[in-house]
């Protein structure tokens, strides 16, 4: 027995893929509802993106192009690992780091900076699918609350936060209401990325492998973070002590989500784009003539590639 004998295109057996596909259609039809599915074991750990991976393997077809990112980066350990696995079990699938080129993007913890299009599908890896778990441990009871769209206990929790801290302290996984009914955990994306779900042109699929749930934010669908009227939703701010928006120390963009870290040599705090593809392309486009907005980046990236040839 060799290793290739054990695998077919897409690793999973076709019945497993069919179950996931049926689940995906239900998830789209009932926006934000966590559809249970059987969830097969994958050859990487539960918690490493097996839900997203099962979605990707059930959807992707020969000749399509895939991008895999983790923390915004194509080259982080887990992204490399997942991409390598998919390449090995889907030999005719192309992979890319260019957001604009991808038919399907599998991501952990980020939505790419570049606005996605109608021809793209975003698959998000989900560790905890249910936003109600912080107020109700029993899934049986949570399912009733979801069905009735009863989120009062969650709102009380947010309210208590405001009483204690003057604002909501939820940093990521911000509870978000889809199409006016179900509240979802949008996966551990920062608050910065939550508005990208609202009326997104791309279909967004969320897969929780360990918790055995698939849910979806269909395109052109309302996605509203849970807030109170007098407490607006705040995304992470990258304002320095002088009131200036911080810029990426590498590409200079002031419009991206930044990672901060301590520079080992200078012992100073520096900021850098978390989306590495965006950062590289922004830097190139800036070097090739001033461009400052995300929307123009698509074209500029192509221009850069031509220039590099």
């Amino acid at each position: 027995m060799n290793t290739s004998e054990a695998t077919q295109f897409g690793f999973l057996d076709e019945f497993a893929k069919k179950e996931i596909r049926r689940t995906v259609l239900k998830a789209i039809a009932i926006p934000g509802y966590q559809v249970p599915y059987s969830s097969r074991e994958m050859p990487m750990g539960r918690g490493f993106g097996t839900g997203g991976l099962q979605l990707t393997l059930s959807i992707i077809g020969r000749g399509q192009t895939l991008k895999v990112i983790d923390q915004g980066s194509d080259d982080s350990v887990n992204a490399v690992n997942l991409r390598g696995f998919i390449e090995s079990v889907c030999p005719s699938v192309n992979t890319t780091t260019n957001t604009a080129d991808a038919d399907l993007i599998q991501s952990r913890h980020r939505i790419p900076e570049l606005a996605l299009t109608e021809n793209q599908v975003l698959v998000l890896q989900v560790p905890y699918p249910d936003p109600l778990v912080i107020v109700e441990p029993s899934e049986e009871k949570r399912k009733i609350m979801h069905g009735e769209a009863d989120y009062s206990r969650l709102l009380v929790k947010l309210y208590e936060d405001i009483v204690h801290f003057d604002e909501v302290t939820i940093s990521h996984r911000y509870p978000t209401c889809i199409n006016g009914h179900y509240v979802i955990d949008p996966s551990p994306i920062p608050r910065y990325d939550v508005p990208k779900l609202d009326q997104s042109k791309a279909l967004v699929l969320l897969g929780a492998g360990r918790e055995k749930k698939i849910y979806a934010v269909p395109p052109f669908t309302d996605a509203t973070p849970l807030v109170f009227d007098d407490q607006p939703f705040h995304i992470e701010n990258f304002i320095d002590q002088d009131g200036q928006r911080r810029a990426c120390q590498q590409c200079g963009s002031t419009e991206s989500f930044l990672d901060e870290y301590m520079d080992a040599e200078t012992q100073t705090l520096v900021f850098q784009c978390s989306d590495t593809d965006y950062c590289t392309r922004y830097l190139s486009s800036r070097n090739n003539g001033a461009l400052h907005s995300n929307t123009e980046l698509d074209n500029s990236a192509e221009a850069v590639e031509l220039a590099n040839d």
Binding site: D70, Q71, H109, H172, I189, P190, E236, F257, E260
Partner: peptide, 8 residues
């Protein structure tokens, strides 16, 4: 890595 969530 949990850089993004930790940043948040």
């Amino acid at each position: 890595p949990h850089y993004v969530t930790f940043q948040s």
